[in-house]
């Protein structure tokens, strides 16, 4: 809009002191603005965390599963897949298929810490390998990192679970789903094997977002392979919050990286060009944030 000056009005120059102080009430403006910006940033971070847990971590798990699948395929074909305990944590040991839930070619890794279940269901150390005589326990996540076992409570008696290990392909039949307080299943007969799939689940309408209690699915196999050596129990429970020192150190470094990226982006935004700062800075900040979230998610229990 253009302001038209009235052509006849002369310009009047005032001399004398001019009051240039801040109008009353506006001294708190910057504080207010600052606090609101901080709160909005906090909200953004919280939303990012939720999005990361529910969606983005699934991509990480998918990527890990791909690599694990190629590896386990080769090992199964060559016959070098592990058939007893002793494999280092994180190695793929079996492939899981649950047709009733649409799970296919899910690679099971050894170990049930948060780092291992982030790649896929983990095999509990101290139980036999799937397909062998005895009890074999597999634990998987239900909320983050692809949530492979999210639908586990939907299994019905009679559904089949197929496991492929170095010893062959085994078909388990589900014979019960139980939670805390339900009776444990009957004893095993000779040459029988039981597979227990464990995950965390919640109750109520928003139970999927608040998995607090463990749920167990038991399946039985009539003719199992002879059991191999069983490993040592892991003292850390899968529902415990357990963070190793190494993770903390990595998280600290990642946070520094995130901070540096943010500072650099802001500086570029002010000194360089707005658009350039967005284009160059956004991916870096995003990647650093992803890294931080990935490390921070290890604070969550291994079954969530």
């Amino acid at each position: 809009m253009s302001v038209l000056l009235a052509p006849d009005e002369p310009t009047v120059v005032r001399t004398g002191p001019v009051d240039a102080s801040v109008p009353p009430g506006l001294a708190r403006e910057p504080i207010r603005l600052g606090v609101s910006q901080a709160l909005l940033a906090l909200a953004l971070v919280a939303v990012w965390l939720v999005v990361y847990l529910t969606v983005l971590s699934g991509f990480e798990q998918g990527h890990a599963q791909k690599g694990l699948y190629d590896r386990v395929r080769t090992e199964l074909a060559l016959g070098t897949a592990p058939m007893s305990a002793g494999a280092p944590a994180g190695t793929p040991i079996a492939v899981l298929d649950v047709p009733a839930l649409g799970i296919s070619n899910l690679v099971v890794v050894e170990g049930t810490r948060a780092e291992q279940t982030a790649d896929g269901p983990g095999h509990l150390l101290g139980s036999v390998l799937p397909g062998q005589q005895g009890v074999s326990v597999l634990m998987g996540r239900s909320l983050a990192f692809g949530a492979p076992f999210a639908d586990l409570p939907r299994l019905r008696v009679g559904d089949r679970i197929l496991v492929t290990t170095g010893q062959g392909r085994f078909t388990y039949t589900v014979n019960g789903v139980r939670r805390r307080g339900d009776p444990v299943p009957a004893a095993l007969q000779a040459k029988e094997g039981r597979l227990s799939l464990v995950t965390a689940a919640g109750d109520g309408r928003f139970g999927a977002l608040a998995p607090g209690d463990t749920v167990y699915v038991d399946a039985v196999l009539a003719d199992a392979a002879p059991a191999g050596v069983v490993g040592t129990r892991d003292p850390v429970s899968p529902m415990e919050v357990h963070v190793s020192a190494g993770t903390l150190a990595e998280l600290a470094l990642a946070l520094q990286l995130l901070l540096g990226a943010l500072v650099a982006t802001v500086w570029a935004w002010q000194r360089w060009s707005h658009r350039g700062a967005w284009i160059a800075g956004a991916p870096v900040v995003l990647a650093a944030a992803w890294l931080c979230s990935s490390l921070a998610s290890q604070f969550l229990p291994a079954l969530v």
Partner: peptide
């Protein structure tokens, strides 16, 4: 015998708390 089961409060309360935090601070 009955199943002992395990419980994790962080798991039960974590994500809802973060969502509430996001809502409130937003």
């Amino acid at each position: 015998a009955l199943t002992a089961g395990e419980h994790s409060s962080l798991g039960a309360a974590g994500v809802p708390a973060v969502l509430l935090l996001a809502l409130a601070s937003g």
